[in-house]
Design a protein around this nucleic acid. Structure first.
Lengths: 261, 261
DNA sequence: CTCAGGATTCCCGCTCAATGGTAATCGTCC
DNA sequence: GGACGATTACCATTGAGCGGGAATCCTGAG
């Protein structure tokens, strides 16, 4: 599918180029970009020039390049993330105002939790969630909630693979996890102390779309030693229902929320 | 620069495709995408397939496609917007908590204001700012602030072009605008009642980066009839200084802020 | 059930844009 | 001045992209 000797399409190379930029590397020289992507020098320069012409990349005074404003704009405007974000933000602000710790919104993507929004960075506690950052499903409260309301077949594939044990409290046993997921579905929330970082614990609740399908997880990260973390749950749940409704969810008919499939 | 009959590169077509998605059209069939972009049918299908393979686009159950999570993730993570956003958000939350109307952060791009963040959508008042949305510089408080602290040469090019008069209060006369910009620099903020929508007015202050260069405009939109809108200024200014400092700004040495060039 | 219209996939020969090596030029720091 | 890296210029080769056309799938109306 490509003209290149290595047999990759331009699209593939485009992805490589964009991927070369991340938190710590928002700008770099073209030469370095070539090194990071592993693309031939000449090719890199030519491709970068094309991208500069379309303003998908931008050149800064020093000569370094970075991802262009236009790219951010186009993707943000066209993406469905914005819609989810817009639905969620007002409620997240409310949660943030009441619970004084950081509030996050995460979705399931490629078997991981992808955080798409976050309010109130609380320097006092350890919180490794970043916007556009990823964390494993089995070791975050958000992930467990997302998994708990996912189709059983999907749960199986996740539980079947080796699960990293980050801290003492990280659950890695499939049977144990399965029971825990059932519990989450029954209670309607996940509260995990120190599953990935010992000092903090997360509480997460599900956000649904139409047809009761799970869409996202709303969560807060609080210090682990907080006396009654579960007291946060009602606020979160109310907010999550508000978000769900804004997404077109019409509410379950009876009893507790059920697993969608 | 392209294999195509029309003489455009793949990159160009990629942009066309991504641009076809916006607020109102976050998903569509491939055929419709072809129509919107004006690309030949076959080409559209092939290109879309390539993009689907890289997960830059995603296919939903119905067959419609939308911008992929991966695309959003890559661009968000690599873009400098996130850095600006992260620096600004805590302060914006503070502003939002005090001023109960919507708080926005805008930057200058392609001679327009591009809003990159917004908190607290206030249904009570008219506010047409959207994230990843654009508005003209001369008809928004954010735009005027951004312009006021821009190099004189740049101001000239903007003022030289025809300026649309949206409401009675929109300034369109270059001389008048120039005087107004001077005033903004002197006061350190812009307060424009009903410049683009009659019912609401905006107040904006500048956010600086290192070297005292203007980086963004922080603003709030309040109902026009609010008795003393100027009372909002100090809060905004304090927040803006906080953001600026987070961006590496070291503070001006003396007196009022000066025009950078 | 049939039919129409649209969406999507398949097929295929043409061709020029993309490729990537090599070499020249620019820039900078010691 | 000179050495090293970054960037630009040049150019022969070729297969990926191209897009018209036809076949197939899908869906809703009659």
């Amino acid at each position: 599918m490509a003209n290149s000797a290595s047999g990759e399409s331009i699209i593939g190379r485009f992805v490589k180029i964009v991927s070369a930029f991340d938190d710590g590397h928002t700008s770099m020289s073209v030469a370095e970009l070539g090194r990071r992507t592993g693309l031939p020098v000449t090719t890199t320069y030519r491709l970068v020039n094309d991208l500069l012409l379309e303003r998908l990349l931008e050149r800064e005074p020093g000569g370094d390049i970075h991802i262009g404003t236009r790219m951010w704009e186009l993707v943000s405007r066209g993406s469905k993330m914005l819609g989810l974000r817009e639905a969620a933000l007002p409620f997240m602000e409310d949660v943030q105002a009441v619970v004084q710790h950081s509030t996050t919104l995460g979705i399931l993507d490629s078997d991981e939790v992808l955080y798409i929004e976050r309010l109130g960075s609380d320097k006092a506690i350890v919180d490794i969630t970043k916007i556009a950052g990823r964390l494993p499903v089995h070791a975050t409260s958000s992930g467990l909630v997302l998994l708990a309301y996912s189709p059983a077949a999907y749960q199986d594939t996740i539980l079947a693979r080796p699960l990293t044990k980050y801290t003492e409290t990280t659950l890695t046993d499939p049977a144990l996890l399965r029971r825990h997921l059932a519990e989450i579905r029954q209670r309607g929330f996940a509260a995990m102390p120190g599953v990935i970082v010992p000092e903090s614990s997360g509480i997460a609740v599900p956000v649904f779309g139409p047809e009761n399908t799970i869409r996202a997880a709303l969560s807060v990260v609080v210090p682990r030693n907080e006396e009654n973390a579960a007291a946060r749950v009602p606020v979160l749940m109310a907010a999550a229902r508000g978000i769900s409704r804004a997404l077109g969810w019409r509410g379950e008919l009876k009893g507790t929320l059920r697993q969608s499939h």
